[in-house]
């Protein structure tokens, strides 16, 4: 059996006296795509940050690419990318300059034009501070693509985007799928995102409530919503 890209055993994290996440067991193989569902504060972002090595677990273990984040964070970080709530951008720099900074640091050609084209942006020279939220989201996607990750952790890809943008994200995720990238997506748009994933996990109050194949995810989500209300 091949080494899973993400392996979690009894994974949990608390902040002060509050458990934000607990009892997560997961094996994600290379090329698999997982949808994380759950309400705000359910633990999706905490789980993604644990997988990204930015957070250390309070209990249980996690291994990414078979490596221990506590000791080999550097090697893991080379191979993954995270799209988070914060855009990871310099607000005073233009979009192209932001991409150039990243490209130089990861040793890519520093021409940002093809990456901007892929996310449908013009190489505007004004600082991203003045950009709309949706455009910044697209730029963050370009930053993620530029890293060419083997594991992509994507928090709320549809947030702040217009309907055209939603369709564009679908296309992007499909592209990643055909390239064999392992993807974890956290999203509230369950119907939309489940069609692009194979597996799904529902988190509520930091605990897993349901997991299964993603074609059942919309039904699980509806059940959960009705049960909870």
């Amino acid at each position: 059996m091949p080494e899973p890209v993400v392996r979690a055993r009894d994974l949990g994290r608390r902040f002060g006296g509050r458990w934000a996440l607990g009892r997560v067991d997961l094996d994600l193989l290379q090329g698999e795509r997982l949808l994380l569902m759950g309400r705000n504060g359910g633990g999706k972002t905490t789980l993604l940050r644990l997988f990204s090595t930015l957070l250390a677990p309070s209990r249980g273990t996690v291994a990414i690419f078979g490596l221990d984040p506590a000791r080999e964070a550097y090697r893991i970080r080379r191979r993954l990318a995270l799209l988070a709530h914060l855009p990871f951008l310099y607000e005073d720099l233009s979009g192209p300059d932001n991409l150039r900074v990243v490209a130089r640091l990861v040793g890519r050609a520093d021409d940002p034009a093809p990456w901007l084209a892929r996310v449908g942006l013009d190489p505007r020279p004004d600082p991203v501070r003045t950009w709309s939220a949706g455009m910044r989201k697209r730029l963050s996607f370009a930053r993620l693509l530029l890293q060419e990750p083997e594991l992509a952790l994507i928090d709320e890809p549809y947030g702040q985007l217009d309907p055209d943008g939603h369709a564009w994200v679908d296309g992007l995720l499909k592209e990643m799928a055909s390239a064999g990238t392992t993807v974890i997506v956290a999203s509230h748009l369950v119907d939309r995102a489940s069609a692009l994933c194979q597996r799904a996990l529902l988190l509520h109050d930091g605990l897993p409530r349901w997991s299964g194949p993603s074609d059942q995810a919309p039904r699980a989500w509806t059940c959960f919503q009705e049960r909870a209300s």
Binding site: R77, A84, L86, F88, L89, Y90, L105, V128, R143
Partner: peptide, 18 residues
């Protein structure tokens, strides 16, 4: 301030930069 505002510093650490 520039680094923390948009999360740029976290982004750099993930690239990874030492």
């Amino acid at each position: 301030l520039q680094e923390v505002e948009g999360g740029a510093l976290e982004g750099l650490l993930l690239l990874p930069v030492s």
